[in-house]
Every structure is written in C-alpha cells, then in structure tokens.
Design a binder for these strands. Structure first.
Lengths: 220, 220, 220, 220
DNA sequence: GATGAATGAGGTTTCATTCAT
DNA sequence: AATGAATGAAACCTCATTCAT
C-alpha cells in the first residue's frame, strides 16, 4: 500500500511511464480495490483501471487474480508489520517510568493497529482465510505473531530486570496486545468508524493499568 | 443456524415437502454456503441446491441475495448471542470461589466464541462490514456489545459485594473478554484450526489469573 | 377496455366480489398492462395485480398469456370498431351542406382514431402482427377495413345522388380516411402527444377540402 | 442494415475475422432479430448468434440491449431516409407531364415505404415508442418528417411555376404521402403480405389522380 | 513489454406456468 | 372457482482470461 489512502478511486493515482514501478502501481491499486470490494467482488478490470494499466499488463506481471491478491496482501502486510516491530524495538529494559513507557508503546501500537491499511488487511484476511489459508503465515504469522514474540522478548528482559513478575512472557505479550486492541473492535465498528484520540488514549491507559496491576513488581 | 455443521455440502440435508419450514431451510443453507464461500463468491444456485429448493422459491421468500445474506446473518447471530448471554446469566454475585467461577464462565464463553458458527459469523461480518454496514448492529451490537453490558452488570455486583475493585465495569468486562479471546485468534488461525481443550483451559486460566491479579480484592 | 384509462396502474380498479365480471376485469387489466408494457415485457403477474386476482384464476379463465392477449385485443377492438361504425352510420345521402357534413363525420372519426385505446390497439397490432398474424382480421379486418366498406357505401350513395364523381368508392373511402389520419401520425408522435382541438379541426378541414376539390360535383 | 433480408436466421451471414466491421455485423444482426421478434422477446443471445460474435463483444460495443436497439434503429432509419430523400430530390419543377412525374415519384416512394426494412422500422417504432420515446426524432423526425419537408419544397416550387394551387405546401405534401401510403396499410396487412406491382401502381395512380384533381392548375 | 478486442462460463434475477389446498 | 407457493427455463449482464497486434 505504501500510504495509498483507501478512499474513493482517484484517477489521479496513475502510474507514470516509468517501467519498474508499474508493478508497484498495480499492487497498490489491487490492495485499494480489494479493500473496497472484497476479493470476490473486486474485478480485475477495476484494478487495472485504478492502476492505469491495461488488463493484459497485469496478467503479464502477476499471472492472475489469485496471485495478485496474494502479492498485494503480502506487500501490504510487510509494511504494516515493519511499523509495529519498529515500535516494539523502542521498548528498552532499563526504563524508569515503566507505566509511562508501556503507555507510550501501547499508544503507538494502537495507531498501527487502527490505521486504514491494518483494518483492511485484517478484514481481507478474515474474509478469505478459507480460500487462501497460506495467507495466514504471510500476514498474521509475520505480523501479530512476530509482534508477540518481539514484545515477549522485551517483557522477559523487564522481568529479568526485576520490574515484572512473569511466568510466560509470550502469554503476557499476547494479553498486553489483547487488552489494547480487544476493546477497540467494537468501539471502531470493526474499523469503519474513527475514534477520537482521547478514546484511544483512554483505552491505552486502561490496558496499561490492568497490565501493571497484574504483572508489575511493586516498588517501595 | 440451529447446529448445522459447516462442513462439505451434504445433499442429505434436504428440506422436506413441508411448506412452513422452507424458509428455515433456506436460511440454514444460506449461512452454510456464505460461510464456506464468502458473500461475493457464494452463488444463489449453490444456496438453493443446499437448501433443496428451486431458485425462484428463494427469491419469493427473501427478494434477493443481499436480503438473504442479511437475514441469514441475523438469524445466526441471534442464536449465538443467546448462548453467550445464557452463560453470563449464570454468574452469581455471592460466589465463594471467585477465581473458579470466573474460570468456569470464561471457559464456557470461549466455547461459544470458538464454535464454527461464531467464527463464521465474525469472518463474514469482518468481510462484508463495508457493504452491509447495518449488519454491525444486528450481529455485533446485539452480540459482543450486549455480552459486555451483561458481564459488566455482574462485575459491578461483585464490586458492590466487595470482591472486585473496579472503576469502570464496562471497561473491565471488555478486558475480561479480550483476555479470553484475543490470544486465541492467532492460535486458532482465525478459527480454521481447532485447539485442544487443554490449550483452551490454559488460555482461560491465564486470562482469569491476570484479571484476578488486577482486580480482585485480596482476602485475608 | 370499456373506458379504462391507460395511465398508471390504479390499485383502485379492483374487481368486486361479483363472479361474472372477473373475466371482464381481467380483460381490462390485461389490455392496460399490454398497452403500457408491450406483449413481450408485460408480465402475467402485473396483469393479475392490476386485475386484483390471483394468477391461477387468470389461467383458469384464459389458459395462458397468448390467449389472454388475443381476447383482450379482440374485446377492445370490438368496442373501437363499434364507435367508428356508429359515426359512419350517421352520414346521410341527402345532405344539403356536403362539405360541412363530411367535416363533421371526419372530425368524429378522428376522435375515435386518436383515442388512447385506438392508439394502443394499433401499436400493439403493429408490434405483434408477426407473432399473432390472425389478429389482423380481428382487429383491422373488423375495424378499419369494415370502416372503409361502410364509408364506401355512403359515398356510393352520394355519387348516385349526383353529389360526388367516383369510379371506385372503396378507394375513395380509403383515401378519405388516409387524408384524415395520415397527417396526424407524425403530429401526435404516434399517439404519445395530444394535439389541440384546433389542430384536429384544421386537419379535418384540409382533408375535407382536398376530398371535395377532387371528388365533388360542382353546383351551379 | 444495407439490404439484409429479414427472413429466417441464416447461419451463413457470419462476420469475418476482421475487427472493424464487427460493429456493423452486430447492428445488422440486431435489426434482423428485433424485426423478427420485437424488442421484448428478442434475446441478446439470438442477436449474438446471428451476428456470429460472442455476447460480451456485443456488450463491449454497445453497452446493453437498449443502446443496441437504439443504434440499430438509428442506423437502419438513416439508410431508409436517405433512399426516400433521394427520390424526392429527383422531382424537378419545370416538368412537362406533371401527372406522369408525380406518379413516378410516388411509385418510387411507395417502393421505399413497402420495403421489408421500412415496415420493420415502422412496426418497431410503433411498438416501442413509449419505452424509447427519443426514437421518434431519430426514426420519424429524420424520416417521414424530413420527407414531408423536402416534398413540400418541391411542391412549393411547382406552385410558383404555376402548376399547382396550394395554400399550405407542407399540408399538401403530407396529404400526398397519406394518399400513397394510407390505402396500403390494410392491403399489405401491415407489411406482412406483399402486394403485386399492379396493385402498387393502381394505388399510385389513384393517389396522383386525386392529388391532381385537387391541386393541379388546369391547362388550356 | 503493452494493449484493444474478443470470449466461454457463470452470475443474479424474472418469467409463464402448475400444484395442492 | 380461487389461491399461495413452487418451479424449470431462460433472460440480461459481468467476469477472469487470452489472442493478435
């Protein structure tokens, strides 16, 4: 996706005459249209129009609708995953204000989680998981799963540092993410309504509060 | 759905010659096929075959594919919601073993959450939320939302009874559900793999453990 | 038709509970719908609705769509023909003001010719003449043809009375009708626009003028 | 149309592999099928078969059945109009034998009027005027109307030349056409029976006779 | 490499017609 | 005699895909 917005099809986003990024333009357009219409109802015509190329060009590059879907999903997932991992990478183990740092990380994770691309990705993955089972590994395995693992590492080091009391860091990481994201599914109407920044921060605060109450080692 | 399994289309499940339950048979078949194929790729032909009726019968009853989808989703959601609410209704406020009771409720909620119908419902809702925005209220609003409210009531009474320390019961209820269900999304591969009962119980234990640690009033 | 107007389907025109005129109600409704939609696009459902009866009733009475069309056309044609013939019957052979009398007859013939029913009848006949060739005899043979013959009789008597100079009365009758109706086809846009009474009278005057110039015996 | 006969569907008239005249082949086939079946009963399948192309090709070119009908009618009408106008264009104003010239023009106009295409055009126009009101201008406005105007011009010049006594040339032109065509509607059973050339010439003779009697300036 | 044009297969929907009541 | 419910057939239209340029 690389920042393509998911709104109405803008004829402006046409691929230039450059050759090498026609592929990129098609992938972008494909994700936009798939996100808007769903896999089944998205037409290759619409994707070619959105990309500003002819249909056979698209077939030359990707071979067919299914392969195009897979690649578009993978490309978008890669970007989304990278952003989330970058957030977790910033979580140090020698922090002073643990609560504040977790809130900061949580807030930035939620921003990733509630972006239009992230919602579109999850919706498409949910929708097509039975027709494209291998997408799970590409999209979720390298996404939320990897996020949990990375976060678990950080939590484990905080435990070693005596700041958290954990038996299962992966489980704790999953729970941290669940506390952040779970309450927002309903409140954002599965990503079709945007919530205020205040509500986002309140959700983060509540999640961090519960997590700290449950796992933090009391400081005297 | 009334217990229709979601596996391969069994020609055996044909509607009898009775008139009054043709409608029911069509709704059942529709949900089965929609769950298997998704809205876009599900064909009215396949639904009619699965239901054992002719296509025009289906159009006489529901008017079209969209209306049929809406009604099939609503009917299935109603059943799923009822089951979840029945579980929460069984959570008393004068319990002895709070932890054990929460674990019991949590386990039964997870059974609801991880049934084939529930996963199919959520997948279809995620997939088609932008084409059928009004489904959210029917499926989620009367489902998970109502569940949170009912659970919040019970938690509030436990707080009144001095067993929990809560400021926002709805938030706590959302978090309880999130702790239960969040970690299972990845582990069940969005409902396409079944997890062992042991893993289910371990997830419940971890969720209840965290919840109790965060919210329970210590007994001396 | 019996005076049923051809405008939008009025749910008000429902058949009473009387049994004998259900047949009549169906014929009326059928002509209204056929006139509005054409034979091919008219649906038996719409006819049954317009008539206020159930579809099988209609089949019991008429056997099918084709037979219903035939009977509805014949019934309407019979009425239309009767009106035209009544006009011609009033043309005496011992008239004083020949020009004025022909104008009067011509005007009343044009009123018949430009009624909604008459236009609808001709349009349907034109449209379906190849699928229902036998309709020609019922509708035209007993209509315009009979009219020409009747008119020819009257013209022949006027010739005998020394008022007209004719060699072929049928031909002259046909020409009289042609002079009246021909110029109106274009001006009424084949019956879809109503022309002013002034234009109607002007057309009659021109037709009669030409006819008199061509056929009248000069009086000294 | 260009002389396509309207008889049974001949599989022989297939479009070659050339690209540019597929459009033409489709228009031809469409008119043939519409003429045979009427708009409502004509199936796009049948048209595609008759044209020797696949259905989507037809949709690519014309967008749908309605547009195809409009274009097929317009194309055929254009040809028919051109032929009629060419006949009128040959009517000089300095003729010697006025009666003979009018008979010649009249005869050739009747040949145009009674061709299979012309009858089919009129039948379809009558049949579908309410569903396609804009066709009137394309088919009639540029056809018979234009013919009347052109003929009126010629008659006016004959009046100027002292050969005819006219007050309203357009009206006279309409009447000339009406005298020619009116009596033939019944005799050809709306174009479904062919009349002998003798009957045609007799009709012309009668029409010209009446017209001359009514409008010609007597030569001494 | 890119494309306009074409297509076989299949989509949703509607129709005229008939049961069983 | 009248009807609500059901249906086989066929309608219009769209899709993913492939040629020949």
């Amino acid at each position: 996706m690389s920042g393509a917005n998911l709104s109405a099809p803008s004829a402006a986003r046409r691929a230039g005459r450059g050759r090498i990024d026609k592929r990129h333009a098609i992938l972008d357009a494909a994700f936009v249209v798939f996100a808007r219409e769903g896999y089944g109802k998205a037409s290759v015509d619409a994707i070619a129009d959105e990309a500003g190329v002819a249909k056979p060009t698209l077939y030359n590059h990707f071979g067919g609708k299914e392969a195009l879907f897979r690649e578009a999903m993978a490309a978008t997932a890669e970007l989304a995953t990278a952003k989330s991992l970058a957030v977790v990478a910033g979580l140090a183990s020698d922090v002073e204000d643990l609560s504040g740092v977790l809130a900061d990380v949580g807030y930035r994770l939620l921003l990733c989680h509630t972006s239009d691309e992230a919602w579109a990705l999850r919706r498409l993955l949910y929708a097509e998981i039975s027709r494209f089972p291998e997408l799970f590994d590409k999209v979720w395995g390298h996404g939320p799963n990897q996020l949990s693992e990375a976060l678990a590492d950080r939590l484990a080091r905080l435990a070693l540092a005596g700041r958290l009391r954990l038996t299962d860091p992966v489980r704790a990481a999953e729970q941290f993410v669940a506390l952040l994201t779970g309450p927002l599914e309903g409140r954002t109407v599965l990503g079709t309504r945007t919530v205020s920044d205040d509500e986002l921060r309140a959700t983060v605060a509540a999640a961090v509060g519960t997590f700290i109450s449950a796992f933090a080692v009391a400081v005297e």
